[in-house]
Design a binder for these strands. Structure first.
Length: 271
DNA sequence: ATATCGACCTGCTAGC
DNA sequence: TGCTAGCAGGTCGATA
C-alpha cells in the first residue's frame, strides 16, 4: 500500500494530535516482521515529542528512544480518542493520554521497533543505506545524474531499490517514468542528462501531487483520520494494462521487472 | 559492490 | 457456486 505519499499523509494526519502525549499502555497482536525489541512495559510513561518520516519509515520520537514504524505492503494507522476493540489484523495499539494509535496490517510485512536512539544498530542497518529524500533540497539533479551514471540496471529497478532516492514505490515509479517519457527497462546509466532532469522533476511532481491529494487509495488505504485518498483515480499507467494511453491513445502495456509489475506506454516511453 | 531471487503473510479476484 | 492459482502498495538477506 504505502509509498512515500501515503506515509507522509498518514504522518500529517496524527503528528500534531499525538505530540506531547504520554504512553499509558501497549497492546501487541500477532508478530510483525520484527519483534518490538523491548518489553512493552518499558514504554510506559514515555512521552511522544514528534513524529518524523524517513523514506517509508515513520519515526516516533520519545522522551527516551524512538519507535521505528513501517507499514509494509498492507499496513495503515489510525489515531483517535477511542477505537473499537481490536480486530484480527490490529497488531499494535499504543494507548496514550491523547488517544490510541493503532496499526492494522493484514499481511504483517510491517514493523514497529523500539530503539534507544537513532544510532541503535538495528535502526542504522535499516535506515543507513537509504537514498536521499526526494522532496528535500538535498535531492539535487546533478548528484542524481552522477549516481544513475554508475548503475547498469534498469531505471525502474534502480528507483525501486531506494538506494539513490527513497520513497518511490511501484505506483509512483511507473507514473514518474511515464511523465518523463522514459522506458522502464532503459539502463539507468544510459539516460541523458536531459532525461534525468525530466525524471528528477517528475518524481518530485508525482509525489507532491499525490501528497496533496491525500495519497493513493488502491485497495483500502486510509490515513490515521480514516479518510481515503484518491490518487488512483488519475494514474496515467499504473493498473491500466490494455487501457488506452491518456496521451497517445495506444494501449498501456504490462511487463515484469524483478517479479514486479511495470506498466508503461511503449509509444510514449521509448528505449 | 551489484544484481537476482526467495521469503515473509493474508486477502482478493480471475478463470475454470 | 466453489476451488485454485496468481497477484498485490515493500524490502530484507542469502547467493553468485
Amino acid at each position: 500500500m504505502p509509498e512515500l505519499p501515503e506515509v507522509e499523509v498518514t504522518r500529517r494526519s496524527f503528528a500534531d494530535a499525538i505530540a506531547g502525549a504520554a504512553i499509558i499502555q501497549v497492546r501487541l497482536g500477532k508478530p510483525l516482521r520484527w519483534a518490538l525489541g523491548v518489553q512493552a512495559e518499558k514504554l510506559h510513561n514515555l512521552r511522544i515529542s514528534a513524529v518524523r518520516r524517513r523514506g517509508k519509515y515513520l519515526i516516533i520520537d520519545l522522551s527516551e528512544g524512538i519507535l521505528l514504524l513501517h507499514l509494509g505492503m498492507s499496513g495503515s494507522l489510525r489515531f483517535a480518542r477511542q477505537l473499537p476493540p481490536p480486530d484480527k489484523h490490529d497488531h499494535f495499539d499504543l494507548h496514550t493520554t491523547q488517544g490510541i494509535l493503532r496499526l492494522n496490517d493484514p499481511r504483517r510485512f510491517g514493523c514497529v521497533l523500539y530503539a534507544t536512539s537513532m544510532y541503535d544498530a538495528r535502526v542504522m542497518r535499516l535506515l543507513g543505506s537509504l537514498g536521499v529524500e526526494p522532496l528535500s533540497a538535498d535531492f539535487q539533479v546533478d548528484v542524481f545524474y552522477q549516481h544513475l551514471r554508475k548503475r547498469k540496471a534498469a531505471i525502474k529497478q534502480v528507483l525501486l531499490a531506494g538506494k539513490i532516492v527513497v520513497g518511490v514505490g511501484n505506483i509512483y515509479a511507473c507514473e514518474a517514468l511515464f511523465q518523463a517519457r522514459i522506458h522502464p527497462e532503459k539502463p539507468a546509466c544510459s539516460l541523458s542528462k536531459k532525461r534525468v532532469e525530466l525524471l528528477w522533476k517528475a518524481i518530485r511532481d508525482v509525489l507532491q501531487a499525490a501528497i496533496e491529494q491525500g495519497g493513493s487509495s488502491l485497495r483500502n488505504y486510509s490515513n490515521a483520520d480514516g479518510k481515503v485518498g484518491y490518487f488512483q483515480l488519475q494514474t496515467m499507467v499504473y493498473g491500466r494494462e490494455g487501457e488506452l494511453c491518456r496521451v497517445c491513445t495506444r494501449p498501456i502495456r504490462l511487463i515484469k521487472q524483478g517479479q514486479r509489475a511495470t506498466y508503461f506506454c511503449s509509444s510514449c516511453q521509448k528505449r
